[in-house]
């Protein structure tokens, strides 16, 4: 899974810093060196990274909900085992990323609190409901496919712990996409009703998947700085185009139709021309108006609150045992 870049229209604030240190930092990054946790870094770099990485981690965690919805209703044991493994991977991805973000001096609890209070964002894609089994196929194929496109370049991102987390995530993500495509392939080759179900899922998930790459380049004011800092390596529009070019033939191969009447191969560009994304809808979902945004947050808050006694009990038990051990020595 991946997060949408939602830095919005705000320009990152400039803070007065030692120009020599800033220059040395910029030179290191320009030289494709990795920045490690204890190295000096500009405050804005640290802040942008915490925002991007925690947002990414939150997306992995919230992303478990739409798919978790189908675990008990997977059509057979094979599919159920696969879906369980995939959802567990999403939890793992969230944890790699939280752990990497913590190296920047923000605690796990601070990040959790930011998510639950609505202060932190997560990918808009997870605020859409999973209505049928085919949605599980569409999510793996399209949503994880878009995530891979976003994440592969981030394996070379300038912040060491983030880059290392991305290497692990990318290795696992490919399974997610292939299992999703396999679901779609089987449905598309099935009965008329199954084929309709697959097409319906593609219809509903196509545009939200294109939105995952974030706002168009001219509405993404921090792209330039993030690219200079190597915490973003391609522009939103470039990645979106790449995704369309790769995915359209995959749909055609299994007899499904991408729901875009402006979609057309452009011989001159060697790429597909495609219709406009509904950015009004995107910004509305970012603001929390997604079809199931409230349910998603309610589920996270409930999980956090229901788990509080377990966290407390385990902590108190560990403290008691540590004290007893100390007394016995």
């Amino acid at each position: 899974m991946y997060t949408t870049d939602m830095s919005g229209s705000k320009k990152a604030e400039a803070v007065a810093e030692d120009p020599a240190k800033v220059a040395a930092f910029e030179a290191r990054v320009a030289n494709d060196e990795f920045i490690e946790p204890k190295d000096w870094m500009p405050e804005a770099y640290r802040k942008t990274l915490v925002r991007q990485m925690s947002q990414h981690a939150h997306s992995e965690i919230v992303g478990m909900l739409p798919e978790g919805n189908w675990i008990t209703r997977a059509p057979n044991l094979r599919r159920k085992a696969i879906l369980l493994a995939k959802v567990q991977d999403e939890a793992g991805h969230g944890l790699y990323l939280y752990s990497a973000a913590e190296t920047l001096g923000t605690s796990r609890d601070e990040m959790t609190e930011a998510l639950l209070s609505g202060k932190a964002k997560y990918s808009t894609i997870f605020n859409y409901p999973t209505l049928t089994w085919a949605d599980i196929g569409a999510i793996g194929w399209l949503v994880d496919g878009a995530a891979i496109m976003n994440q592969v370049p981030l394996q070379r991102t300038s912040y060491g712990p983030y880059a290392r987390a991305m290497v692990r995530i990318c290795k696992e993500e490919s399974f997610h996409q292939r299992q999703g495509y396999e679901i779609m392939m089987h449905l598309a080759a099935g009965t008329d009703a199954q084929k309709r179900m697959a097409q319906d899922a593609l219809n509903r998930w196509w545009w939200p998947s294109l939105m995952m790459f974030g706002p168009p380049d001219d509405k993404s004011p921090n792209t330039e700085q993030s690219m200079r800092w190597r915490i973003k390596r391609d522009t939103n529009d470039d990645l979106r185009q790449k995704f369309v070019d790769i995915t359209v033939p995959q749909a055609e191969a299994i007899g499904l139709t991408v729901p875009d009447d402006k979609l057309k191969w452009n011989e001159e560009r060697g790429a597909y021309d495609f219709g406009d994304v509904d950015w009004e809808e995107f910004y509305a979902v970012v603001k929390g108006e997604g079809p199931v945004a409230k349910e998603r947050m309610q589920a996270r808050v409930k999980a956090w609150e229901d788990g509080a006694w377990v966290r407390d009990a385990a902590r108190v038990h560990a403290e008691k045992r540590a004290a007893a051990k100390l007394a016995a020595e």
């Binding site: 991977d89 752990s99 692990r168």
Partner: peptide, 23 residues
Amino acid sequence: VGSVHAADAKMAVEHARDTYTRR
């Protein structure tokens, strides 16, 4: 490979196992 949160060492090993050795 990374880090985990856990109340004690035994739980840390269990969390590390689930988080970092699924494959």
